[in-house]
């Protein structure tokens, strides 16, 4: 049980971290824009956008994966266009796993960000405008720093969700070792093998350790934030 990590385990762990990091790199900026739109935007059809963002939260993940496959698959309209125009293939590729993880994590990224932005006093934003700051400057210097605890929460929840993604990932990206076989997928594959229980258990322990590290990291970030605020 306490042997060093095998190549197979390292591969699954490394791939999972790569996929979750890519999902955050895309999902955080996108989630921030969506949260800003939902918190501050006044436009018709806002509820439709809100429903669309939250859809992956309520749909069975396999269904989300199936929708991705029909859109971004080799024969899907978007997938074919991406392939013909840019030579990019997402299905059964690690970028596809990252896309699935991003989509599944998005509702959990948007929610804390939106709550945090809604909690920022509009009066402070007006005060900053009166001092000469453009809307972008107000966002960067006032809204975003004051919403920082929400950003930390969004990063943690988003990372955790992307790291643990299984259903949409296997459906859309498959379980190709070294390409799309992330940690959760590897655990499931191990369980399918006769006498794969111990391998699955070792992978599960790795998953628990990574999750604990993520929680501890976000807690450290939060404490730093509170200290710099003198609150």
């Amino acid at each position: 049980m306490f042997e060093p990590l095998s190549d197979f385990e390292l591969q699954a762990l490394g791939l999972s971290i790569k996929v979750a990091t890519a999902a955050l790199a895309v999902g955080l900026p996108l989630g921030l824009a969506l949260a800003m739109l939902l918190a501050r935007g006044r436009f018709p059809g806002r509820w439709i956008l809100e429903a669309a963002v939250n859809l992956p939260l309520v749909l069975p993940p396999v269904v989300t994966g199936l929708i991705l496959l029909s859109l971004f698959g080799v024969r899907g309209p978007v997938g074919r266009a991406l392939h013909d125009l840019f030579g990019v293939t997402l299905a059964f590729h690690w970028t596809g796993a990252a896309l699935a993880a991003t989509l599944m994590a998005l509702p959990l990224v948007v929610r804390p960000l939106r709550l945090a932005i809604e909690g920022v006093d509009r009066g402070l934003e007006d005060a900053a405008s009166m001092l000469g700051a453009s809307r972008l400057a107000v966002f960067v210097r006032i809204t975003l720093p004051l919403a920082a605890p929400g950003l930390v929460a969004a990063a943690l929840l988003g990372f955790a969700r992307a790291f643990g993604e299984f259903g949409a990932t296997v459906t859309f990206a498959g379980a190709i070792p070294g390409e799309t076989q992330t940690l959760p997928v590897a655990i499931y594959s191990a369980l399918q093998r006769a006498e794969g229980d111990q391998a699955a258990m070792r992978l599960a322990v790795i998953a628990v350790l990574v999750s604990v590290l993520a929680v501890v990291g976000s807690e450290i970030c939060n404490r730093r934030l509170q200290r710099t605020r003198g609150a």
Partner: peptide
């Protein structure tokens, strides 16, 4: 402003 509105951070 009446409620001052200094930037807390």
């Amino acid at each position: 402003f009446q409620d001052i509105r200094l930037f807390p951070h």
